[in-house]
């Protein structure tokens, strides 16, 4: 990686951490998943993936090594790869919004999987936990869907103007 690529990657990691921290103050409203869509669609695959991995490592350092931080490491870099793959297949914002929304909806339950498996919950407890989780995930789905629909293009244009050598679209 060249120096400016390293710097951009570090900046992308920092922005992701800031967006994540801001989102953690308000339940149901978060733009973290939207940022992953932006990274996957507008930056080089390697750079977006590295920034996301660095973000999760930063999270492990600051929040501790726990099942949920490890799940972040397993999950979110792969989300970026999915978005990077999708951009080769289509340019439809509606498709991006649907995929982003669905992945945002799934992430809560996927991150919860180790806890569900370790806890060895009974049927009722499992159902209750999943349903409570789905309610929060719906907020994430809607936020991500609307953000991709209305903010993706303006943000993409702004990024192309600010950092034309970095944007990969």
């Amino acid at each position: 990686m060249r120096t400016y690529e390293l710097t951009t990657t570090a900046l992308l990691t920092a922005v992701l951490y800031i967006v994540y921290t801001m989102g953690s103050f308000v339940m149901y409203v978060e733009l973290f998943n939207f940022m992953l869509v932006v990274y996957g669609l507008y930056f080089k695959r390697k750079q977006a993936w590295t920034a996301t991995v660095l973000f999760t490592l930063l999270l492990i350092i600051t929040r501790g090594l726990a099942p949920w931080t490890l799940m972040y490491l397993l999950l979110f870099p792969q989300y970026v790869l999915i978005y990077a793959w999708i951009k080769k297949k289509t340019s439809s914002e509606i498709v991006f919004a649907i995929v982003g929304g669905m992945l945002a909806f799934c992430c809560g339950t996927i991150i919860d999987l180790p806890y569900i498996l370790i806890a060895n919950l009974g049927y009722e407890a499992l159902l209750a936990r999943l349903l409570l989780g789905f309610q929060v995930s719906l907020g994430n789905l809607l936020c991500t869907f609307l953000a991709v629909l209305f903010l993706l293009k303006p943000l993409g244009k702004a990024l192309a103007r600010i950092a034309p050598h970095t944007v990969d679209r």
Partner: peptide
């Protein structure tokens, strides 16, 4: 206009799903 319709549709679907996922377990 198309985006707006999609957005309205998504809001309606999510609100409907929110009520479907309401659980009696903790009422």
């Amino acid at each position: 206009k198309k985006k707006l319709w999609f957005a309205i549709g998504a809001v309606i679907l999510v609100v409907a799903a929110f009520f479907i996922f309401q659980t009696d377990f903790f009422s």
